[in-house]
Amino acid sequence: VTEGTTMARFEIAALVRRYRQLEAEIAALDAELKALVQTTMEYQWLKTVDGLGDATIIDLLAEIGSFAHYRDPRQLVKLAGLTLKENSSGQRKGQKHISKRGRKRLRSVLFRAVIPLIRHNEAFRELHEYYTTRPVNPLSGKQSIVALCRKLLNVLFAICTKKQAFDAERMKQDVLSQVQRAA
């Protein structure tokens, strides 16, 4: 191709300039969001959870708003669409699935938050291992992650409403006490 190379170079240079401009705008917007979120008290409590980064906290607070708007963590679980529904009719009892009747982006944020928590937070890693290897009703990997999403919402609600730092030992004891009560 010998024709149009000058205009092609001009167009590519214009696209690269626009790309760099958009990158700069996104970086400025991220810095502004981070500064805005850091002014809230909820940010200070959410930062106590190892494995939750600034971007995750920003996305979470953008989807949920303030935790003070909710009276019970089950409202947050329902908002995320993580409530269980059963597909059954008459005498047939179907399997239970999450309802997915909530905010898709909130479920996505929670799912993306739990994966690093499993890697970097000892308490969530142990819970994931327990859920996937327990002798009665072991969960698959993805089912365990959904259960941890619900647990994360409950923990974050408790942290922000009670204004206490995250305590991994207390969370593990709560889960073990529920298991012992069920047995």
Rank of each mutant, 00 (worst) to 15 (best):
L156V: 13
L152E: 08
K142E: 15
Q143K: 09
K151Y: 08
K162F: 00
A165M: 11
Q173Y: 01
L176T: 14
N154D: 10
R170A: 14
F157G: 10
R150Q: 07
F166C: 06
A168P: 12
C160G: 09
V175R: 00
F157Y: 14
Q143L: 04
L148F: 06
V146K: 03
D167Q: 11
K163C: 12
R170E: 13
T161P: 02
K172P: 06
D167S: 11
S144L: 08
M171S: 03
R170V: 14
Q164V: 14
A147D: 07
D174F: 06
C160V: 03
R150K: 14
K162S: 11
E169I: 12
L148E: 03
F166W: 07
K151H: 05
A158E: 01
C149N: 02
L176F: 14
C149M: 12
L153Q: 01
K163M: 13
L176R: 15
I159L: 13
L156T: 15
K163H: 13
A168H: 06
I145L: 07
V175F: 10
Q143I: 02
C149Y: 05
L148I: 01
M171V: 11
I159F: 09
K162E: 13
I145E: 04
L148P: 06
V146S: 08
A168V: 04
Q173F: 07
K142W: 10
M171A: 02
Q164F: 05
E169H: 14
K162C: 03
T161L: 12
L152V: 00
L152I: 00
K162Q: 15
Q164S: 12
L148T: 01
K163P: 11
K142N: 15
V175W: 08
M171F: 02
F157P: 01
L153M: 11
A165F: 09
D174W: 06
D167F: 07
L152A: 07
A158P: 05
E169V: 15
L148G: 04
R150F: 00
A165I: 12
V146L: 09
D174S: 12
A147P: 10
S144W: 06
Q173K: 14
I159W: 03
C149F: 01
N154V: 06
L153Y: 08
K151C: 03
K172Y: 00
R150W: 00
R170D: 12
A158H: 10
Q164A: 11
L153D: 05
V146F: 01
R150L: 00
L152M: 11
T161C: 04
D174C: 10
E169R: 14
K151F: 00
K172C: 08
A147Y: 06
N154H: 11
V155D: 02
Q164C: 11
N154K: 08
A165D: 15
V146C: 03
N154L: 02
R170F: 08
I159Q: 03
K172Q: 13
Q164E: 15
Q173L: 13
Q143F: 09
F166M: 08
L156G: 02
A147Q: 02
V155F: 05
L156D: 06
L152H: 05
C149P: 01
L176M: 15
C160Q: 05
L152W: 06
Q143V: 01
L156E: 10
I145Y: 00
S144A: 15
T161E: 09
I159A: 02
C160D: 07
K142A: 13
M171C: 05
A168C: 11
A158F: 08
L176E: 15
V146Q: 04
K172F: 09
A147N: 08
L176P: 08
A147W: 08
N154E: 10
T161V: 10
I159D: 02
I159H: 03
Q173N: 14
